Amino acid sequence: MLKIAWSPIFAHPLPLGHRFPMEKYQLLPEQLMYEGTATEANFFAPELVEERWIVNTHESEYWEKLRTLSLSKSEIRKTGFPLSSELVSREVHIMAGSIQAAIYAIDYGIGMNIAGGTHHAFTNRGEGFCLLNDLAITANYLLENKLAKKVLIIDLDVHQGNGTAEIFQETPEVFTFSMHGKANYPMHKEKSDLDVELDDGMKDFEYLKLLDENLNQVLKTFTPDFILYQSGVDILETDKLGRLSVSIQGLRTRDNMVLDLAKEMQIPIMCCMGGGYSPQIKDIIEGHAQVYRLAQDIFF
């Protein structure tokens, strides 16, 4: 059975007019149940994990400042969110959801998180709507518990997974693969194990060709036994921050390629949602929803 991490806390209220589409975390599960892609049985509420899994990835000083709401105004501004205890709780639940979805993936081939993909969180700071790096924490959890030996992080959000790259600079057991806009945020890029930079306006054919070539090469040379997939939908032509021209059909082909390869190679995969900033919320929801449809079609 497809297991999907979700909690009402994911849809944390933000000030009116905030550009982050927080409502998608409520609308997406509603859409999946409305169309029959998922039922209540598919969803699970994340159970909190020990704090040591946070400080195993993030610096303890940073976690203490975050936990006690002691970040400076500058540090808060870089995250893009107003800091509160409720927000911190949200981030902790998201991280726990990714860990538990990954554990489900070992049994079912795939596990998913309605939120997550917080790839701009560094060891010692948060940036770009990311406070705790659920991808990195999950990878370290899998490795330390001997649930995986080699973890591949596939980050197809339009923005580079800079925090993830920084965290795993010297971790050969984790391969960071990021395909992202060359001229897009963040302007200063970190060095992933493989960075594929995309020109503004790139369309389906060139995008999918680059993904096919690079992903197959990484799978062949790194030979992972677990995949963490950041499936951001901000590559869409409708996205106001993405600067690419990938269609909804191209997005579906992208997700199908990743999930199909994982299934074919029998590599467990945990999929989290990442970014999406199309002006029409329906475009964001449709972009995210199709990866769940594909998961059901391919794995079950």
Rank of each mutant, 00 (worst) to 15 (best):
L211K: 00
L259P: 08
L83I: 14
S70R: 15
A101I: 01
E23I: 08
S247V: 02
L131S: 00
D200M: 12
T123D: 05
C130N: 07
Q266I: 04
D234H: 03
Y141H: 12
L241Q: 13
I284P: 10
A183V: 12
F177N: 09
E197C: 14
I94Y: 00
F300R: 07
F222L: 04
K282F: 00
F122S: 03
E30N: 13
H288E: 15
R252A: 14
H12D: 03
M33H: 05
D212G: 01
D200W: 10
Q230S: 10
S72V: 09
F81W: 13
S84T: 01
K240H: 08
L259I: 13
Q280G: 01
L251K: 06
L27I: 07
K182L: 11
H120E: 12
L152T: 02
S245D: 12
V233G: 02
T68S: 13
Y104N: 01
L210T: 03
R90L: 04
M112L: 14
E206V: 05
F10N: 05
A45N: 10
H119C: 07
I284H: 11
V49N: 03
E127V: 06
N56L: 09
K73S: 15
S7Y: 03
P172T: 04
D134F: 04
E206W: 06
K189L: 12
Y62V: 03
I99A: 09
G250M: 02
K3I: 09
N256D: 12
